[in-house]
């Protein structure tokens, strides 16, 4: 049963990613991407990561892609849709992508899961997933957490600075 769910989610994810890359109209690409993010959230649910599934839907699908849609609609894409969407030699670039898959597979060939951490499914279930994640995040990873908040602050200020109109002096 779980395998069927995985098969559906994985197939839809790959198909939608291909549609994102091949689409001619950027608005369509962004909407396919939205659907693909929802399927990835489903994969996270299969892996017992409820909090990350919610974050994926709220932050990625809710915030980042809405930002993308706003920007795509701000820009005038009429003449962009008329030019050829691929560079010359895209076949060669496709071979490069296949080569990347091959290298990743070769690198993982000897990999076995031997290490088992303390957070088994039962332990996560007992603590609930959000609480377990929070415990690890706010004890061992408190410094990266603070740095992430600084990164977001820099991004806010930088985005305002870059996108605002230059005032004529």
């Amino acid at each position: 049963m779980v395998e069927w769910f995985f098969g559906y989610l994985a197939g839809a994810t790959i198909l939608l990613s291909i549609l994102v890359v091949l689409g001619r109209n950027p608005v369509h690409s962004v909407l396919w991407m939205l659907l693909m993010f929802l399927h990835v959230a489903g994969l996270y649910l299969l892996l017992n990561a409820e909090f990350l599934a919610a974050t994926q839907v709220i932050v990625y699908a809710g915030a980042i892609l809405v930002l993308f849609l706003f920007v795509v609609m701000l820009l005038n894409l009429k003449e962009e849709m008329r030019v050829r969407q691929f560079t010359g030699g895209w076949l060669f670039r496709g071979l490069i992508a296949l080569g990347i898959i091959y290298v990743l597979r070769k690198g993982l060939e000897g990999f076995r899961v031997e290490f088992k951490g303390p957070w088994s499914i039962e332990a996560v279930e007992r603590a609930t997933h959000t609480k377990a994640l929070g415990q690890v995040l706010f004890t061992d990873y408190i410094l990266p957490f603070e740095v992430a908040s600084l990164v977001l602050l820099v991004a806010i200020i930088g985005a305002v600075f870059l996108a605002k109109k230059r005032l004529r002096s």
Binding site: I14, S17, I18, V20, V21, Q85, F86, T87, W90, R93, G94, I96, A97, L98, I100, I101, L104
Partner: peptide, 10 residues
């Protein structure tokens, strides 16, 4: 890999 292809071919 699909992402890499999109980045270098589009």
């Amino acid at each position: 890999a699909i992402g890499v292809f999109g980045f270098i071919a589009r």
